[in-house]
Every structure is written in C-alpha cells, then in structure tokens.
Design a protein around this nucleic acid. Sequence first.
DNA 1: GGTTAAAGTGATAATCATTTTCAATTGAGG
DNA 2: CCTCAATTGAAAATGATTATCACTTTAACC
Lengths: 143, 143
Amino acid sequence: MKRSKKKLFQEFIASKGLKSTRQRDTVLECFLSSDHHMSTEDLYLKVRGKYPTIGYATVYRTLKLFAESGIAREIHFGDGQTRYEHVAEGEHHDHLICTRCGAVTEFENETIERLQAEVAEQFGFEVATHKLELYGICSKCRE
Amino acid sequence: MKRSKKKLFQEFIASKGLKSTRQRDTVLECFLSSDHHMSTEDLYLKVRGKYPTIGYATVYRTLKLFAESGIAREIHFGDGQTRYEHVAEGEHHDHLICTRCGAVTEFENETIERLQAEVAEQFGFEVATHKLELYGICSKCRE
DNA sequence: GGTTAAAGTGATAATCATTTTCAATTGAGG
DNA sequence: CCTCAATTGAAAATGATTATCACTTTAACC
C-alpha cells in the first residue's frame, strides 16, 4: 500500500517533468509513516529529524504536490492550519471533532455517502470530493 | 424573523454587559439584509455604504459577536477567508461548492442529518454542530 | 442634564500561516 | 562529464485576522 503510493507519486513527478529529490523522498516517507492527517508543522518537525536542513517552504511545496498527485487531500478544521490526510483509492473518512480537547476521530458511513450522491444529482452537480465534519464533545470529555 | 434576530442579538449584548452602538446596529442590519453567507470583506464593503468611517476591526469583532450570540455561524471553504452564514432556529444547510466557478448552493437533507446523529451516538459523541460540503462541478459549468 | 467608569472604536502595528523571490545547488538526459 | 531546467533554503512578502492604545461613546446613577 505504501509502496503503491510511493509509486503513484513517482509517476506523477515523472509525468510532470519534475525531479525526484532526497527532500521529496524524505517528506513522502515521513508523511506515509503516519496513519492520520497531519499539519504542515507536524510534518516539518518530523522531517527535520531525518533531514535537519529541510526548509519550511519545501515541506509546503511538497505537500501541495501530494495533493495534486492525488495521494493526499487538504483538510481545514477552521483553526487556521491546513492539514493533509491520506487518500486511499475509493476510501474516504469523515471526522468527529471534539471542540473541548481537539481530538479528531475518523468514521465512514456508506449510507451517508450514497445520500450525498443523490442530493448532488438532484442539483445536476458532479461531486469530486466531499467533507463531513461533526463538531461537539467526545466521549472522554463527557465523562 | 429579522426582528427576532435583532432582538436575540440585543438580548445577548445586554446579558453580557456589552453596549449597543450605532456601528453594531449597522453591521447587523447589513448582515441581515443578505440571505446568504458573506465574507468579512463583503460585509465590510457593504457597511461602508451606510457608515463610511467603520473600521475593519469593528466588523471582525462584530461578526465574532454574532457567532457567539448564535445568530451566525463561521464557515470555512478552504480559500483562506472566513465567511458567516445565518443561523435559523433548528435549520441547517449544507453546501455544494463548485470548484470551477466558485458558486455555492445550499441544501438540506433530513435523512443525512439523522444518520449523522446515529454515527455520533455510536462513538458516544455529543454533536453541537456539523458541516457538510460537496465539492465538484456545478450544473452550469457542466453545460 | 452632568458625571463617570467601563466598553467600544478606528488607525495602526503585530501575528500567523503560507507564498514568493532569488541566488546557489542539484538531478536527468544527452 | 555538461548543460539546463527544476529545486532548494533563507529571507522577504503577502493576506487574513488579532492586538494595542489613545480617544470617544454608552449606560447607569446622582
């Protein structure tokens, strides 16, 4: 799975006439080494561990490439920071966001997805991606 | 309906020991005069028409108060600008966002809402608000 | 109506995340 | 190995939003 994302990204890079560099490889490795979404800062700090001279700009630029290549997707929770999550073919997860402790839980629900498609069709809208976030208090904080 | 929102905001202001000012009244009027969501800049420009000396900071501050008072809600589409939409008691609308022309259409679907509540319950999560956005190409752009 | 303390305002400076710039470096193909 | 376009990192620039602060206004009280 990781192998395939690496390959996907390599192909994307090649098809655009871009170059493969140690920086991009390192950022990709670090990104793939986590299961969940991460902010640019999270990733920057992680990459610094393996490649101390990396610059912020490079991480920003590389993440945009991930999004363009389709292996990642930007997400915005409204706290002013952009995060990136993994995109697996045909898979999508939505979020439960605790407004007290900030915890983010992922979930999937096929029925909701299907209903979304129906609504879009009614409007003649062609859906590319979607975002569903539920804000509230998580079970731990409610105890 | 507008009357009730004005009243709601007045009550909120009073309950917090805040003051009623011409600036706040003007911003509220301008906000209520539109049916849909608007960015801070949109509103700022509109308010300037009625109150030319208004400052950006005041509009920002007032919008935050609207959100706190419950008559408005922040929305983020990922373009770096915060927008505010009207909140009507018990009503909620989700968004179809065209990534080509930027058009935003609102919709409601009770079944989706109900399913969301079910999912949240499974996680022991208490939902306060939610956000559902479908990104893609609108019917006009598809022609 | 005048007094006053607390809240509000507006101009401006400050922040914060993200982009751009640019000189120096590096990768891929010939 | 050479060449040239792509890449990088540091630092400056940007754009949205927030904080600061001297001055003004509101609401309550006398």
